[in-house]
């Protein structure tokens, strides 16, 4: 037991951004940083807003909802939101889970195409100014996406089948310009015990 606790403790390393900033000439370990970001930050993130609540707020005042809950770096029509919700799995197709929510709406959980900056930006945990170039800033996303796509989600979804009830937290992209489908890139999925 003590050995397991010891190994568990030493399997996760945390690296502060301030350390990174001071290491300009040292190769930065993005994988290590993503590991620490995932296990330290997103997993325990309490900022995720309930999806239904977000949609209600957007209907009432989209500008305010985008400003309060969304994250858009720079200039653009869309923003990323960290949302949480739950429902029953109604379809599983090529890595995409269709979820029937309690209110009758359908949500898609994309577990295969987890790429880009959606999760990094929805989390709000990393700032553009933390990295010297956009290329480095994007490497954070790649490493973080790899952790979630290859380490976390395969375990999360391995036992999930149609009819199961699940809860999940993930990144959602919404646009003020056009209606985008409710496709969420999950950060984690939890199978509810029957």
């Amino acid at each position: 037991m003590i050995l397991i606790a010891f190994l568990g403790y030493n399997s996760v390393y945390f690296q502060k951004l301030s350390t990174h900033k001071n290491q300009k000439n040292v190769t930065f370990d993005f994988n290590l940083f993503a590991d620490s970001l995932y296990f330290k930050g997103i997993l325990t993130n309490t900022k995720a807003i309930d999806l239904n609540e977000l949609l209600v707020q957007i209907k009432e005042n989209s500008d305010s909802a985008f400003k309060t809950h969304g994250n858009r770096l720079g200039i653009g029509n869309s923003a990323f939101f960290m949302v949480k919700s739950q429902g029953k799995v109604s379809k599983i197709d090529n890595g995409q889970l269709t979820i029937a929510a309690l209110n009758g709406s359908f949500i898609n959980l994309e577990t295969k195409y987890i790429f880009g900056n959606a999760i990094r930006d929805a989390s709000g945990l990393v700032k553009l100014t933390d990295f010297k170039t956009n290329a480095d800033f994007n490497k954070v996303s790649e490493a973080l996406n790899t952790v979630i796509r290859e380490k976390v989600l395969p375990k999360n979804i391995s036992k999930i089948k149609i009819g199961d009830e699940i809860s999940f937290t993930g990144a959602l992209k919404l646009s003020k310009k056009e209606v985008l489908g409710l496709v969420i890139l999950p950060v984690f999925i939890t199978l509810k015990e029957k």
């Binding site: 858009r72 770096l73 200039i75 653009g76 029509n77």
Partner: peptide, 19 residues
Amino acid sequence: FPQRVPVEVELVKSSNANK
């Protein structure tokens, strides 16, 4: 001033090209 200001790029494909 912010050192870098990213400007969003939008995907254009047949389903939304008319917009």
